[in-house]
């Protein structure tokens, strides 16, 4: 009995780590850059496939390949914001307009990135085995790669949090999130900060993708499901709150593993029920006021 409970708890934490990480990325993109990035999952997918390619073709270890994939997805995100979204932001009369239009533009991007991925890697499901030996934790067995995933999710998440709360750039980002106009008046280069945020969001997605590819099978159409999970976590934790995304991610992971234990296959349904109930009852999230 105790083993079962532990089993569920740890499985939930392992899943939650990834959820938290990808939600932090989306949170940054929506909370600061005001882009509800429907193509977020596509960046996750890109990160996963780049890692897969590097591992299967050159034998580069996934955690090392982060050094290659991260700058790449960051640059893609940064350039996208500098060109596409900056243009949209300037031409939109209101924030609401920009949010709507940028979301639809992301939908177009989703199509494009998916197509490029199918052309490059084919449409089939892929996977590889890396550090898949079992580790015994208090009687429950888990694959080593999942534990590493969790560890890295926590490390990246915390590093990111420290970056936002301690560094100068982080402070500029938070200022821009509060009030872009005022931040601009304070001498912060808004366009640059917003692009940086979008790029960092893509980077988090890319890291998430790398970690996901270590433990799960991947395919070019995997994106939307992760986007939706990130979105749910975002609402659970409160839109735009980084600590909220972290708490929300682990919470959702736990809910997922409990529901899966009771009734496999209902986890996603449970996520959506929570998502919609929260939107109705407390759209500011569980940590929100």
């Amino acid at each position: 009995m105790i083993v079962t409970v532990l089993d569920i708890l740890i499985a939930g934490l392992l899943m939650g780590g990834i959820y938290a990480l990808i939600a932090v990325g989306l949170s940054l993109q929506y909370g600061v850059a005001r882009v509800l990035n429907i193509a977020h999952g596509e960046f996750i997918m890109l990160g996963a496939f780049i890692t897969w390619s590097l591992y299967t073709a050159f034998g580069i270890v996934p955690l090392v390949s982060l050094a290659i994939s991260s700058p790449l997805v960051f640059t893609i995100g940064f350039i996208l914001y500098k060109t596409l979204f900056t243009r949209l932001r300037i031409s939109s009369p209101s924030v609401a307009m920009f949010e709507g239009k940028s979301m639809l533009a992301c939908f177009g991007l989703l199509f494009m990135i998916q197509n490029i991925a199918i052309l490059s890697w084919g449409a089939e499901i892929k996977g590889y085995s890396y550090l898949a030996f079992p580790v015994n934790i208090l009687g429950a067995k888990f694959a080593a790669n999942r534990l590493i995933t969790l560890g890295f999710a926590v490390v990246f998440g915390s590093a990111f949090y420290l970056f936002l709360s301690r560094t100068r750039i982080g402070k500029a980002i938070r200022a821009a999130a509060q009030d872009a106009v005022a931040a601009g008046l304070m001498g912060i280069n808004i366009s640059w900060v917003l692009a940086l945020c979008f790029g960092l969001g893509a980077l988090m997605a890319g890291i998430g993708g790398t970690l996901i590819s270590m433990s799960y099978q991947i395919q070019p159409t995997m994106g939307l499901e992760y986007t939706m999970i990130a979105l749910i976590v975002l609402v659970v934790g409160g839109l735009g709150s980084i600590p909220g995304s972290f708490v929300g991610g682990f919470l959702l992971g736990l809910v997922g593993s409990i529901v899966t234990y009771v009734q496999p296959g209902l986890a996603l349904v449970a996520y959506y029920v929570i998502f919609m109930l929260l939107l109705l009852a407390k759209p500011t999230g569980i940590l929100g006021r």
């Binding site: 239009k101 939908f107 494009m112």
Partner: peptide
């Protein structure tokens, strides 16, 4: 290539 072109047209139309 249809999704690629179609996606591009969507983005173009919005812009």
């Amino acid at each position: 290539y249809y999704m690629l072109i179609f996606g591009f047209i969507m983005v173009f139309a919005i812009l």
